[in-house]
Simulated assay, not measured.
Amino acid sequence: MTHATYSGIWPVAPTPFNPDGSLDLPGMRRVLDCMIDQHVDGICILANYSEQFLISDAERETLTRLSLEHVAGRVPVIVTISHYATPIVVERAQLAKDLGAHSVMIMAPYHGALLKGTAEQTYEQFAAVGEVGIPIMLQDAPLSGVDLPVPLLVRMANEIEMLKLFKIECPQAAAKLRSLIAEGGAAIEGPFDGEEAITLLADLDAGATGTMTSAMIPDLIKPILTDFLAGNRQAAIDGYARVLPAVNHENRQCGFRAAKAAMLEGGVIASDFCRHPVVPLHADTRAMLLELIRPLDPVVLKWGK
């Protein structure tokens, strides 16, 4: 879509832990450097694939400061600030802005299965963050359990000046993206998809201009986006077919553990530890993941070697 001003691949940075469960801060810097060497267009931190639900508030601030200082403007950084409490979301937005973040990403307010914001409460929370004066990416993800119909998103896009980007990763994302773009017009400045790009081709066909994947193989997914947006449809289809088995295995079998497993294999990080109650990848699942990505020769498997 010609009106979109945000595009490209903006993957989620994993959060590395030491084997004892403490933050691996040198490893975090290596993760960010590896992602920049994967030629990403931006980086998202503290998202679900960063294990944000396993990180304390103090650790969030440490990681926010470290990441923005270390990236130092080499690429834009999106800071995820989702929380049920609007004052906490606003406080996190202000910190991100003060530290030089490009934008913030927010899910609808929720806390478990039964504490979920209404449509109006979601609007009010995003409007409050908009007052901080930093661009916002709305994350429409099933994890929140909050239904965000297209008319609500269009209203928010038109009435909340700082709401610029929309990461649509609900079921049948392409249909929602198509409707959102058709009804929202120029107010939808950055229609993105997510879910490791498992539906990327359909989403691009629907008008998406960007994607937020994991940090596993963004260097191999970016050319699909570039080819498609340049009108090279068959090249995009061929590229998508090449990476889809690995993306499917990541999405359906591994989740956020896949990027960490690949980074451990490639010497980016020293441990792929995940905090309890997350269980380690089964050895067979890990083996198949590596079996699927090795022939693709991604940056992640050779970056630290």
Rank of each mutant, 00 (worst) to 15 (best):
L201F: 12
E183S: 09
A197E: 00
L292K: 07
A128M: 00
E61D: 15
E196I: 07
L138K: 01
C254D: 01
R30F: 07
T209F: 06
M105Q: 13
I43W: 00
I45W: 02
Y123I: 05
A236I: 11
I221H: 08
L114M: 12
E91Q: 15
K167D: 07
A186G: 10
T226F: 07
L289T: 03
V104S: 00
E51L: 12
R294Y: 02
E183W: 05
A241P: 06
L281P: 01
K222W: 06
D98Q: 15
I217C: 08
L46A: 08
K260L: 04
I134H: 07
A197P: 02
L163D: 01
C44M: 14
A246H: 02
A287C: 09
I269S: 02
T211Y: 05
L66A: 09
E159W: 04
M288N: 09
Q52E: 08
H111L: 13
I78L: 14
W303I: 11
N48D: 11
K302I: 06
V299G: 08
S144P: 07
I136S: 04
I237L: 15
L290P: 05
Q139Y: 09
R275P: 05
L95M: 14
T199E: 12
Q234I: 12
L32E: 01
Y240E: 10
M162D: 14
L115W: 14
L115F: 15
N251K: 00
H102R: 07
I221M: 11
M162C: 12
W303N: 11
K116P: 10
I88E: 15
R29Q: 15
T199M: 11
S82I: 03
A47L: 07
T86H: 09
I221R: 06
D24F: 00
L32N: 04
D238F: 08
T15H: 02
D284L: 01
S144W: 05
I269Y: 06
Y84I: 15
Y240W: 14
N248H: 13
G210Y: 08
G27A: 08
G133L: 01
C170T: 14
G304P: 02
P16C: 09
S179L: 13
R30G: 03
G145M: 01
Q121G: 11
I237M: 15
D272H: 05
D297G: 09
R252P: 01
L244W: 08
K116W: 11
M263I: 02
P218Q: 13
N18Q: 14
D98H: 13
T118Q: 08
P151W: 06
T80K: 09
A174W: 11
G194Q: 08
L296R: 02
E183Y: 01
M162S: 15
M137L: 13
K167E: 10
Y84V: 15
H3I: 09
G266V: 06
R74L: 02
V71C: 09
D284V: 08
A215G: 13
K176M: 14
L115I: 13
C170L: 13
P191Q: 06
I293E: 05
P298L: 07
E51N: 12
Q121R: 06
D203R: 06
K302Y: 08
L148P: 03
M216Q: 08
V90F: 07
A13D: 05
G194H: 07
